[in-house]
């Protein structure tokens, strides 16, 4: 029969929902209800709204100002069905952001994305860790923009309004069945963007799986800073940045 050691060994290989023990014709009640609960939690994360007071309080404790925007997708339902609206600022929002100052070196944006829970759990800590590192390198960042109903490309319009060279967009990743708290970070040099045109994903650098059981907030902030400094040096981001860095490594190697 199956020993606890053997089961632990199997579980260490994969998180797949294997049938351990007896193998019936249908999944047993405990398995079925566990699956339903995991799905309910993933759905709750998708439908959750950005907890602005909590995030703002955490940012405030770290001495960081914030500014709130909502994308052109004004409701959660519209956000899910219309990704195009989630990438756009509504009329007047850019002017209002401009009034907040600028230009800055780096625009910091924290959005809900597909899991506002992830943004609430790890977003303020990530922004605090990154902002500290930026200031230590003499880079300016302005207030953290808290973005509701936000897709990645919403950051481009925000960066243009703030006259920022580089935008860091952190938002909740699409929840899987086992994790709904994963934060993703997309960093884009605005030299790659043209106003009014879609910015290709190949011009973005991405850090993913930032959560308690994944990439730590501090490690993510350190990696983000490295990318930002490289973007500042090369004026590139995404695939072009990788190519520029590879070329430079070749030159150094000579």
């Amino acid at each position: 029969m199956t020993t606890p050691e053997a089961l632990a060994q199997i579980r260490s290989l994969t998180q797949a929902r294997l049938t351990l023990g007896s193998r019936g014709r249908s999944a047993d009640t405990a398995t079925t209800l566990r699956f339903a609960l995991d799905h309910a939690q993933a759905r709750a994360a998708v439908l959750s709204e950005l907890d602005v007071p909590r995030i703002a309080a955490n940012l405030g404790q770290a001495g960081l100002a914030h500014h709130i925007v909502t994308s052109a997708a004004d409701t959660r339902d519209s956000f899910v069905r219309r990704p195009d609206l989630g990438r756009m600022l509504p009329e007047g929002a850019a002017e209002s952001l401009r009034g907040d100052g600028g230009p800055v070196d780096v625009a910091l944006v924290l959005g809900d994305g597909l899991s506002a829970i992830a943004a609430a759990l790890n977003g303020a800590a990530f922004m605090t860790a990154l902002a500290t590192r930026l200031r230590n390198c003499g880079l300016s960042h302005g207030p953290v923009i808290l973005a509701r109903q936000a897709r990645v490309a919403l950051g481009d319009g925000i960066a243009q309004a703030l006259q920022a060279d580089i935008v860091v967009m952190a938002l909740g990743e699409r929840p899987g069945l086992s994790a709904a708290d994963s934060l993703g970070v997309y960093i884009t040099h605005q030299g790659s963007c043209q106003p009014g045109q879609t910015t290709p994903d190949s011009t973005r650098n991405c850090l993913s799986n930032i959560r308690a059981a994944g990439l730590s907030v501090d490690e993510a902030a350190a990696q983000a800073l490295t990318l930002i400094l490289a973007m500042g040096d090369t004026g590139q981001s995404g695939v072009a940045l990788s190519k520029a860095l590879a070329a430079r490594a070749l030159v150094k190697g000579d």
């Binding site: 998180q15 797949a16 929902r17 294997l18 699956f35």
Partner: peptide
């Protein structure tokens, strides 16, 4: 396994 693809989420 268990209707959950843990790679493609």
């Amino acid at each position: 396994p268990g209707a959950d693809d843990i790679m493609l989420n």
